[in-house]
């Protein structure tokens, strides 16, 4: 089955069938990651540029490993080492990279819409690795992959997502994806971190996280940015932890086998207690592991989904 999308800008523009195709493709790639020789020739001769305007370790490394295991040539460019600091525009930076004929640009940018902007102006495929507070599609896909792997399904599950909803691209991509695959989403967070109308993206919003957690099949905690403490949005991390943190007590309200997820990097003792983060229900490192397979699937599918001569 061919894949119709040239770019992966967000989950918003993917159909349910395309999402399932990505997850199924990731399933078939996952096994490669546990071989002794972790490399297949699938994308040999393809060039992938990881263009990161924001700091990222996990996502960038994951995309890089994904590309390398498919035998693509992957190059990392981070904003601090690029000409961006010299005042070059985003379009010029991207056009200069494109002049060297990459097949795919994997891009992270602090401005919502930045990958969409480049997709309108460049010929190569763009994969959004996170844009501002907008979307982070590969994260939502690896979350879904992990849920499906652990619980066998997504349809009908209750998924609680808790934390800073306003500034989270993870929550938006997850809302699109979970709704398309038939899950029920509950959201909770501090009153200052619930953006207007988010329920219209398909969720029930709670202010008491216990209500969101109660009976949930999955509890996904969002990272709180530590620098928000003491400014207008948040009094202290201490209070945040008390009212919006996941701990063994409130986790008991969830289903007995509920999954505990976190997109990382975690603030232990803030949004998630260490005993929960390391506890038997956590699948946080599974998420990271699955991220490689999901990103291999994305790179493969936007490349046309055909095996190169090898």
């Amino acid at each position: 089955m061919s894949f119709a999308q040239k770019h992966i800008l967000g989950i918003d523009h993917l159909s349910r069938e395309e999402i399932i195709q990505i997850l199924d493709t990731a399933d078939s790639f996952k096994e490669i990651n546990t071989r002794a020789i972790k490399k297949v020739p699938t994308l040999r001769g393809k060039t992938i540029v990881n263009l990161f305007f924001e700091a990222s370790t996990r996502t960038r490394t994951s995309f890089e490993i994904a590309g390398k295991r498919l035998s693509a040539d992957t190059i990392n460019i981070s904003a601090s080492s690029s000409s961006v600091v010299k005042g070059e525009t985003l379009e010029d930076t991207a056009r200069n990279i494109e002049a060297m004929h990459p097949d795919i640009i994997v891009m992270r940018h602090g401005a919502s819409g930045a990958p969409h902007y480049l997709a309108d102006r460049l010929d190569c495929s763009i994969i959004n690795a996170g844009d501002g507070a907008h979307e982070h599609p590969s994260q939502a896909l690896l979350d879904a992959f992990t849920i499906r792997e652990k619980l066998g399904r997504i349809e009908g599950l209750n998924v609680a997502i808790i934390g800073d909803l306003t500034h989270s691209r993870v929550v938006r991509s997850n809302l699109y994806l979970l709704n398309k695959l038939g899950a029920k989403v509950r959201l909770a967070g501090p009153g200052t971190m619930i953006p207007p109308g988010i329920e219209k993206l398909g969720a029930t919003v709670y202010h008491d996280i216990n209500q969101a957690i109660e009976g949930a099949d999955v509890v996904m905690m969002l990272r709180i940015q530590l620098e928000r403490q003491g400014k207008t949005l948040l009094p202290t991390l201490r209070e945040y932890s008390r009212f919006y943190g996941l701990n063994p007590n409130n986790l008991k309200l969830a289903q007995e086998n509920a999954l505990v997820m976190h997109p990382g990097p975690m603030n232990r003792g803030v949004e998630i207690s260490s005993s929960v983060a390391d506890g038997p229900q956590n699948v946080i490192l599974d998420q990271v592991e699955n991220g490689v397979a999901v990103r291999m699937a994305l790179l493969y599918l936007v490349s046309g989904g055909e095996e190169t001569e090898g």
């Binding site: 501002g132 507070a133 979307e135 938006r172 953006p195 109308g197 988010i198």
Partner: peptide
């Protein structure tokens, strides 16, 4: 809602 959706 539009700003929420666009992440702006």
């Amino acid at each position: 809602f539009v700003s929420t959706e666009l992440g702006l």
